[in-house]
């Protein structure tokens, strides 16, 4: 059954592909328009210009999907009635190899700095809020790899990250309304563009990138916290 459907899809797909421009050709009309628009707004990274300036409303939707997904995961992963928190520790630090701990402690500050750098230079070099946010969230979880779950729990108050996630999402929406007030269009690029290639440039691109960075970092931390809680800290489900 699958092979009939799959074969049909394959035939249609090949039919579509042979009508497309050849791979690697020089015909890219959207590229030309997007590059002109990015340079006009002083944004060195054209991909960020598309994401946070030309198609910012699309990124608002993307960010909202992410927000809803964190909410959904939190709702699905909340502890049921039969489950309770395990008493005592959840596996101590002594189970971790010394080399792993050393690597974790060296990499933890490094990863946080790289994450902040990727968020802050999203309009200049490859990167931006989404990528940097994930790097930041991963950096926090090096504490779990190198230390223990308890160490992670102590240094990561989940409810604070829930607030900062909301703050990031609201900042994005608020910057959009600032565009309405000043320029008459939602998410219009209203901040002065600055010098091309400078750290302070590209108008709202970097601000929106920061907002997304805060939201994504907090959202990933909250979501992983719920998964880790299910996997490590709870016991007594109906099938355990």
């Amino acid at each position: 059954m699958f092979f009939i459907g799959g074969g049909l899809v394959a035939v249609l797909y090949v039919w579509a592909v042979v009508g497309m421009p050849l791979f690697g050709s020089i015909f890219h009309p959207y590229r030309d328009l997007a590059i002109h628009a990015a340079v006009a707004h002083g944004t060195a990274n054209a991909v960020s210009a598309v994401n946070f300036d030309q198609r910012a409303i699309d990124t608002l939707g993307e960010e909202t999907i992410f927000f809803a997904s964190v909410l959904g995961a939190a709702a699905l992963l909340r502890p049921s009635k039969e489950e309770r928190e395990k008493r005592g520790g959840h596996g101590g630090a002594e189970q971790v190899m010394a080399s792993t701990r050393l690597a974790g402690y060296v990499l933890f500050p490094l990863t946080i700095i790289i994450g902040l750098d990727v968020v802050a230079h999203g309009h200049l070099t490859p990167g931006g809020g989404f990528q940097g946010g994930v790097v930041l969230a991963t950096g926090i979880h090096l504490l779990y790899v190198a230390g223990s779950y308890d160490a992670l729990e102590r240094t990561r108050p989940v409810h604070l990250y829930e607030y900062s996630e909301v703050a990031g999402a609201l900042a994005f929406v608020g910057l959009g309304f600032a565009g309405i007030v000043i320029a008459g269009a939602y998410l219009a690029n209203v901040v002065p563009y600055g010098g091309f290639g400078h750290l302070v440039s590209a108008g709202t691109v970097d601000l929106l990138s920061f907002a997304v960075g805060i939201e994504v970092a907090s959202g990933v931390i909250v979501m992983l916290a719920h998964f880790l809680e299910q996997a490590i800290a709870l016991q007594g489900g109906p099938h355990e």
């Binding site: 590229r31 997007a34 991909v47 210009a49 699309d58 490859p126």
Partner: peptide, 27 residues
């Protein structure tokens, strides 16, 4: 499609629009 002080803006770059769409896709 990333420019700077050494690479001046030019049109001999790959399409940034589909790269931004891919980012959306990954998220």
């Amino acid at each position: 499609p990333v420019f700077g002080s050494t690479i001046k803006p030019n049109l001999k770059v790959v399409d940034p629009v589909v790269q931004a769409l891919t980012l959306t896709d990954i998220v």
